[in-house]
C-alpha cells in the first residue's frame, strides 16, 4: 500500500460518506443523480464478487463491504425513504442506464483478459465505473445550482481517480506491478471526465464564489 493508493481510497471513502451524510442529515438528495448511484451499485456488485472467492486482506474486504453497503444505502434512500425521495428531481435526472450499461457489456464481451464469468463481470465493472459519473455531471450542468456537498462529492470522486493513476505509476516503478491496459485506459477516461468539472471547481474556489457550471 503506497501513499497514493491510500489517499485514493480515503478520498473515495470520503466522497461516499459526504453523500450519505448529506442525505441522512438534511434528508435531501437534491442535485444527486439516482442514475449514477444505481450504476455505482452495479459496478460494486459486479466487481466485488471476489469477496466470496479470494481473500486479499482485511482492509480490502472491509472497504469492499463499505462501498457495497453505502452505494446500496444511497439508492435505497433516494428510492424508498419517504422524506428523501420527495427531494429527488426525476425530471432533470433523465440519463438512460442502458445507454451506458449496454456498450460497457458489449465492450467487456469483446475486450477482456480471460473469458470467464468473473473476469467478464470485473471488466464490465471497470468500463462502467469509467462512465458512471456521466448522469451526475449532466445533472449538475443542467441544474447549475450546485450545493457545497454535491460539489465536494464530485470533487472527491475525481481526486480518487487521479490518485489511483499516480498509484499505478508508482507501483509500476517500485513494485514492477503492471496494471492491465484495460484498467489504464478506463482509468484515464474516467479521470478526464472530471477535468472540466475540476476546472470550474478550482476557479470558484480561487475566486471564492459559489460553484456554477456553464450551461
Amino acid at each position: 500500500m503506497n501513499i497514493f493508493r491510500l489517499a485514493g481510497d480515503m478520498t473515495h471513502l470520503a466522497s461516499v460518506l459526504v453523500l450519505l451524510l448529506k442525505i441522512h442529515t438534511i434528508k435531501s438528495c437534491a442535485g444527486v443523480s439516482l442514475k449514477t448511484q444505481e450504476l455505482y451499485a452495479l459496478v460494486f456488485a459486479t466487481r466485488y464478487l471476489d469477496i466470496f472467492t479470494d481473500f486479499i486482506s482485511v482492509y480490502n474486504t472491509v472497504m469492499k463491504l463499505i462501498f457495497l453497503g453505502s452505494s446500496f444505502s444511497i439508492v435505497w434512500y433516494i428510492r424508498r425513504h419517504k422524506i428523501v425521495r420527495r427531494s429527488y428531481d426525476k425530471e432533470q435526472d433523465t440519463f438512460r442506464h442502458y445507454f451506458l450499461v449496454l456498450p460497457c457489456l458489449l465492450l467487456a464481451l469483446l475486450i477482456h483478459e480471460k473469458f470467464t464469468v468473473k473476469e467478464l463481470l470485473w471488466t464490465f465493472s471497470i468500463y462502467l465505473e469509467a462512465v458512471a459519473i456521466l448522469p451526475q455531471l449532466v445533472l449538475l450542468q443542467r441544474t447549475r445550482n450546485i450545493d457545497n456537498l454535491t460539489g465536494q462529492y464530485v470533487f472527491l470522486l475525481g481526486a480518487y481517480r487521479s490518485l489511483y493513476i499516480l498509484n499505478w505509476i508508482y507501483r509500476y516503478f517500485t513494485e514492477r506491478h503492471f496494471v492491465h491496459w484495460i484498467t489504464w485506459i478506463a482509468g484515464l477516461v474516467q479521470t478526464l471526465l472530471y477535468a472540466d468539472f475540476f476546472y470550474y471547481y478550482f476557479e470558484s474556489w480561487k475566486n471564492n464564489v459559489k460553484l456554477q457550471l456553464p450551461a
Binding site: 493508493r5 481510497d9 473515495h12 486479499i56 472497504m63 462501498f67 498509484n167 496494471v179 492491465h180
Partner: peptide, 10 residues
C-alpha cells in the same frame, strides 16, 4: 506468461 495483474485494488 507471468501473472501481472493481481486484482488487489478496489
Amino acid at each position: 506468461e507471468e501473472e501481472t495483474d493481481v486484482k488487489d485494488e478496489l
